[in-house]
């Protein structure tokens, strides 16, 4: 079976792995530790495809019914 590229599906939002500096900036802007972000599991299909590792922070850009485009973040945890 040909593996389907889930990232190209229209219902899957855009994911980015943040660099160390970006994570630091994010931490500062919200005044939090990484663990305070919402979590995403490493076994999540998107995490597996983009190769996110525990400890990474993902930036997700998605469209929202009320606000048009929104940006949210996820902290990758094992499991």
């Amino acid at each position: 079976m040909v593996k389907f590229d889930i990232l190209s599906h229209e219902l899957v939002p855009k994911f980015f792995i943040l660099s160390k500096e970006e994570v630091e900036a994010l931490r500062h802007s919200y005044g939090i530790r990484k663990e305070s972000l919402p979590w995403i599991r490493r076994s999540d299909p998107v995490c597996k495809t983009i190769g996110a590792r525990p400890g990474d922070v993902l930036k997700i850009e998605r469209s929202s019914e009320v606000a048009g485009r929104t940006v949210v973040y996820r902290y990758v945890v094992p499991g």
């Binding site: 919200y30 939090i32 663990e35 305070s36 972000l37 919402p38 929202s64 009320v66 606000a67 929104t70 940006v71 949210v72 973040y73």
Partner: peptide
């Protein structure tokens, strides 16, 4: 504008997205 739990964990990055 963030929605947070008692431990400061973020539940929503902006209340209701807008």
């Amino acid at each position: 504008g963030t929605v947070r739990g008692t431990d400061g964990s973020i539940i929503q990055f902006k209340y209701g997205d807008d």
